[in-house]
Amino acid sequence: MEILDVLRNGDHRLTRRMAAWDSAWARQVLPPVEEAVEHTKLWWAAAVIMAAAGGRRGRKAAATGITAVALGELLSNGVAKQLVERRRPPKEWIPHDDVEERPDSSSFPSGHTAAAVAFTAAVALSWPWAGAACAVPTVAVALERVHSGAHYPSDVAAGAVIGLAAAALVRRAPRLLVHRLACP
């Protein structure tokens, strides 16, 4: 049990430190990032731009990105949050006003991070340049989720793992389906 206590204490210390991060950049950038990713608005907008301007490659990247977001949200919000009940970080750890706008659902895992990583990883597999561009807001989402007091860093890490798994499944699913149909 000692190793779990060490991990939990580190998670709590990092949460307090990130939530207390007070910089002009954090105050100006992170709240609009949170608003942009609410209900996956940012990822839908990116997909529309890729599909409209990126030709065949852009349409493929957009389709795989949105499919990965759907799967990432299903795995994180529809499955993992139902299995793991974890309280959000205590309000007294968060020294700014964002703490009042936290969801009531389980803290574990971060669904916003799962969706962001799923989209970015799936897009990167189809169109590396666009994936690299999407990585910037994805990192901002991960930072914002802890800074706002909505999640512990371990929740964000778990969301990232779920997002990567969703992207990999979306990438692999067509081949698995074709193989399954060809070899009954």
Rank of each mutant, 00 (worst) to 15 (best):
L7M: 06
R171T: 04
P103A: 12
P137D: 09
H151N: 11
L169S: 10
P89L: 10
M50E: 05
V6F: 05
S148L: 06
F108T: 02
M18Q: 13
T67W: 02
A68S: 13
A80V: 14
S110A: 12
E92W: 10
G149D: 09
C134P: 01
L30R: 11
G78H: 06
W129T: 14
R57G: 01
G55F: 05
A168P: 01
A166V: 02
A20Q: 12
L176F: 00
A140I: 00
A118R: 03
P184N: 10
A150L: 10
A168Q: 08
E100Q: 12
V146M: 09
V136Y: 01
T113F: 01
H151S: 06
R57H: 06
D5F: 03
H39Y: 13
D5P: 00
A52R: 03
R88K: 13
H179W: 15
A114M: 00
I3H: 05
N9Q: 15
R59N: 03
R86F: 03
S106G: 13
P103Q: 13
R27L: 05
A121M: 14
V33G: 09
L164G: 13
N9Y: 04
P32Q: 12
D104F: 06
D104H: 12
D5H: 08
A130G: 10
V146K: 13
L181T: 04
A165K: 06
A121E: 08
S76M: 08
P137G: 13
A157N: 07
A51W: 13
P128R: 15
R17E: 03
R57V: 07
A130M: 11
R8D: 06
H179Q: 11
H12F: 01
D155C: 07
W44H: 09
S23Q: 08
A158Y: 00
R59H: 03
V33F: 02
R145H: 09
G149V: 08
A36C: 05
V117Y: 04
H112M: 11
H147V: 11
A51S: 12
S126F: 00
S105A: 11
W25A: 15
L181F: 02
A165D: 01
E34Q: 13
R87T: 09
A46K: 04
V156C: 08
A165T: 09
R86V: 04
A132D: 05
A62T: 04
H112L: 12
P31L: 14
A45H: 01
A115Y: 01
A70H: 03
A24V: 05
L125Q: 14
S106T: 06
E100T: 11
S126T: 02
W127L: 12
V141E: 07
N77E: 11
V29N: 10
T15F: 10
P90G: 12
E100Y: 11
S148D: 14
R56I: 01
A167I: 06
V69T: 09
A157I: 15
A62S: 06
P137K: 14
E38D: 15
R102I: 12
W129H: 12
K91L: 04
W93L: 13
L83C: 04
V37R: 14
L169A: 15
I3E: 07
R8E: 10
